[in-house]
């Protein structure tokens, strides 16, 4: 008989949204507050793992159609290309750039190229963490 995990699944549906929001908050705040790409990526991975725990692997895979190995590689690629951006403008490798922009809702916001680098880090962390969990769970 299949165990009835309706409570787990219902709680997960709510909790995953909260965890995703929190991880994005952590990720965006990295420059001025504790947080950043690594912890942001890790908490996102935690949300994904929670999904895998509550629902079965096939179901989640149908809905999140991402190859996490390639996601990790994409993350590294983004990080490297951020560094190359500095070279493109005749600066040293990994030189950062930043500027202030008026954005519609946020007002005056500091935009930095470090954020793109952090996106790369976050993607690499998500890809690696989820990939480890998935590889262990598949017993073959």
């Amino acid at each position: 008989m299949k165990p009835n995990d309706v409570i787990l699944q219902s709680v997960t549906k709510v909790a995953v949204v909260i965890i995703f929001t929190f991880s994005i908050y952590l990720f965006m705040n990295g420059h001025h507050n504790p947080g950043g790409g690594f912890i942001g990526g890790l908490s996102t991975a935690a949300a994904v793992v929670l999904l895998y725990l509550a629902f079965d692997i096939e179901k989640v895979r149908e809905n999140i159609r991402i190859d996490f190995k390639k996601l990790a590689a994409l993350g590294v690629l983004i990080a490297v290309c951020t560094g190359l951006g500095g070279v493109l403008f005749g600066e040293e490798f990994l030189t950062q750039a930043f500027g202030y922009k008026e954005l519609p809702i946020f007002g005056k916001t500091e935009l930095t190229s470090a954020l793109i680098f952090d996106t790369g880090v976050a993607l690499a962390v998500i890809g690696t963490a989820v990939n480890i969990i998935l590889s262990i769970s598949e017993d073959r």
């Binding site: 190995k69 390639k70 990790a72 590689a73 590294v76 690629l77 490297v80 560094g83 190359l84 070279v87 600066e91 040293e92 490798f93």
Partner: peptide
């Protein structure tokens, strides 16, 4: 300043990442 110094690291790094996409 001389970005040539970092290139011997960058070339294999880019290659390594791109190779992951063509695993099969």
């Amino acid at each position: 300043m001389n970005n040539l110094v970092v290139l011997p690291i960058l070339v294999p790094l880019l290659a390594a990442v791109i190779l992951i996409f063509f695993a099969k």
